[in-house]
């Protein structure tokens, strides 16, 4: 279903959910949960947004049934650790590539996806200061390196 423009802010989290459907269903579930909660705050009034959010909720409930016995889904503290570990793993991969001077689409995507997953961590509560800094740095780095490569410059 097409994403209504009012919900544009969650489109990348939903794409990350789709990309992880098979690879890591727990990541996919929490990306959708974050998108659902954020979408409800963005706009649950206009009919097309409400329709979209109802579909997303249907998806979440069926994922919940499929994954219900997974501790990462049934216990928030386990889910929190799962998402945080995954986000930091992506961040470290990208950071290592950056420090080694290896700039490519994959590492840009890893920086950006790690920042999205740090957004998702907020479903479990306030982000730590460290994760807020990580998210800011990862988003800035992804944008900076992307622009450098687009302009044919070497990132510093």
């Amino acid at each position: 279903m097409a994403l209504p423009p009012q919900l544009r802010a969650i489109q990348h989290h939903l794409r990350t959910a789709q990309e992880h459907e098979k690879r890591d269903p727990v990541v996919s579930y929490y990306c959708r949960l974050y998108a659902m909660q954020t979408g409800m705050k963005l706009d649950s009034k206009t009919p097309e947004c409400r329709k979209f959010l109802v579909k997303l909720m249907d998806q979440l409930e069926s994922m919940k049934k499929e994954l219900g016995d997974n501790d990462s889904i049934s216990q928030e503290v386990v889910g929190n650790a799962h998402i945080e570990n995954y986000a930091l793993k992506m961040f470290l991969y990208a950071d290592n590539e950056d420090r080694a001077g290896r700039f490519h689409k994959n590492m840009i995507k890893s920086f950006y996806s790690s920042s999205l997953l740090l957004d998702v961590l907020s479903v479990f509560g306030e982000l730590s200061e460290e994760n807020i800094q990580h998210r800011k740095y990862a988003r800035w780095k992804a944008t900076y390196i992307h622009n450098c490569l687009k302009n044919g410059e070497t990132p510093q």
Partner: peptide
């Protein structure tokens, strides 16, 4: 129609909030 539309909208919003709360409570 305006008021009916509004009450349908808010009923659906409430239902979504309840489903979300239920989903999270079961975690």
């Amino acid at each position: 129609t305006g008021s009916v539309g509004t009450s349908v909208a808010s009923a659906e919003q409430d239902e979504l909030s309840q489903r979300l709360a239920k989903l999270r409570d079961q975690m």
